[in-house]
Write a protein that binds this DNA or RNA. Sequence first.
DNA 1: ACATATCCATGAATAAAATTCATAATTTCT
DNA 2: AGAAATTATGAATTTTATTCATGGATATGT
Lengths: 349, 349
Amino acid sequence: MNKIHNFYVTMTSLSLLELRHLRTLAALDETGSVSRAAKRVHLTQSALSHQIKVLQNHYGLPIVRRQGQSIELTEAGKHLVALARRVLEEIQATERNLAKMSEHASGSLRIVLECHTCFDWLMPLMDAFRQNWPEVELDLVSGFHSDPIQLLEEGGADVVIGSEQVERRGIVHHPLFRFEILAVLAPEHSLRAKKILHAHDFAGETLITYPVPEERIDLIRTVLKAAGVQPERRTAELTVAILQLVASRRGVAALPSWGLKNYVEHDYVIARRIGSQGLWSDLYASTLAETATRPYLRDFLATARNTCFATLEGIIPLEPVEQQAPERQQGGETVMEKKRGRSIKRMNG
Amino acid sequence: MNKIHNFYVTMTSLSLLELRHLRTLAALDETGSVSRAAKRVHLTQSALSHQIKVLQNHYGLPIVRRQGQSIELTEAGKHLVALARRVLEEIQATERNLAKMSEHASGSLRIVLECHTCFDWLMPLMDAFRQNWPEVELDLVSGFHSDPIQLLEEGGADVVIGSEQVERRGIVHHPLFRFEILAVLAPEHSLRAKKILHAHDFAGETLITYPVPEERIDLIRTVLKAAGVQPERRTAELTVAILQLVASRRGVAALPSWGLKNYVEHDYVIARRIGSQGLWSDLYASTLAETATRPYLRDFLATARNTCFATLEGIIPLEPVEQQAPERQQGGETVMEKKRGRSIKRMNG
DNA sequence: ACATATCCATGAATAAAATTCATAATTTCT
DNA sequence: AGAAATTATGAATTTTATTCATGGATATGT
């Protein structure tokens, strides 16, 4: 029936464009480089290069232009990026709606912050979240907690934002990003000539930190302890207060690179790399496995990543690393095995 | 460097949604059936079934509900369809912009209509086109032409909309859709009792047609000629005029199903299938190979298909059939080989 | 200036996934 | 009840995206 004729006819392939491309375009725009964008979307640089090529062939237009060490979007590229922005936003919005339909969109999201500086990006994020999930009780759990993960288990909190990543049954760690911790000095400080500071440079200095135990301070834990350097400490609650103390030469500090830009540009303080590789820290959001399935939590994480990558400079995405699958039956946590998309894979042996 | 830790961490797969899914959703909504939607997007029913399943699993929500012989979109499905509509429209708009950037968006689009009834859907389409491509000279080539394809070759027209599909060098045929031609009778006509009309039923009747030669009238060419039936003919220029003549019992007609619905519902006329399989006709837009590459032509075809499928009832998509690849060098027409997307393939041997 | 990172492009190999095929299950219509 | 039409599903297959392995090109630093 319906016999099919036996010869070709053109069928102009209407749009080979896929959301994947739009996500790539957005990342390209945000990072200004193919390889950085690749990290951002968890693919290789090669994959993105191929994607770009396909698009350029399809539209018969250049989309990016190689500009020395990085790239620049062409006119056409900008059009596509604008499209990507709008479309991806619309998608997020309706996915939020679907999530709200799928279960009760209520619950609590009580956040423990191990990293004080994270206030900077968390505040606006929380404001946005409140709008999208009015039914969710959103809170910051204040005060110091020696074992914040335990708080999760006890039900006293729902998310811990910190850099530890202890393997602990029933707990999942959602990678956020990696950032560099820089040493902050007064512009006239005697160490100003050095491009890179090493452990011994801190000997005899006063270290200004947030009021948390030493083990929570990366500089001390991973750099100074090992070198046997033990500077004096002085604490302040707020980032601005720390910076003010540094500027007025009461001591030096070590802070995430992203919050420093403005102050450095105005010569309020200067920032220096710590160690030749730099001192880096990874940030995770940890939750109970159960909590991880909640749609509002997933939305929270998604927008956290989005806004951080869009807002914070100099941070890099973390590879989602795979947990040594808990061999035999470990309970009902098939959650992650099921829910995760295709793109979790080892990227180096 | 950057040693990678050795265990898993959840990475909530952010949206496995792709445009493919949105295109499917839109088709599902328009056709109300998985198999019809499949034809619409040139995939198998199975493929769509799988797609739907994936989406439902992903969102944890039913998207379609089986409703007897066809399907119904759920609340969630409707959300997604609404998204699809907006997104696909935005994409078409920016692709139009890109097309305009890639070459001069000017030229001419002079249309020859072999099928008179096509006026019905062509008019609004032309209006829309004029808005999007103000630089393109849009015209209907009037009058009768015995060999319209020749008009293309002579440069007197740019597109022929008709049902012939003669293989001719340098000419490409873009499939539009397949539609059924129904016999139209006055409600009191003596043949009203028959569900299906056959060739001999037309003997002794007056056939009311557009004023075109017999070879252009499918009913005569493919049904009556073969049976040696030769009814009287009477012609009218406009579809409404034909219908009026039929209603006033001056004769019978054969018209595309889509334009009849309103008249049939109001009992102005009645419509009957012709032959047990029905009488079907395929519609193609034919152009020079060269014209086929113009972005405005491709846009015209795309929106033609879109609006037709959205507007006209009872039409079905045509499989893009592959031309018996012109073995050895047949000139420069690599155009279609290059430009067409992946999805041209034989779907039944 | 020369070695050394970085960065992007590209072809081939590989891995992933979407689609088809074959068939079962379900519903409707006669 | 049987036939026809429609959707669902598991397995096979094809198609496609992605990685891998390089090469060339552009800075970067000593």
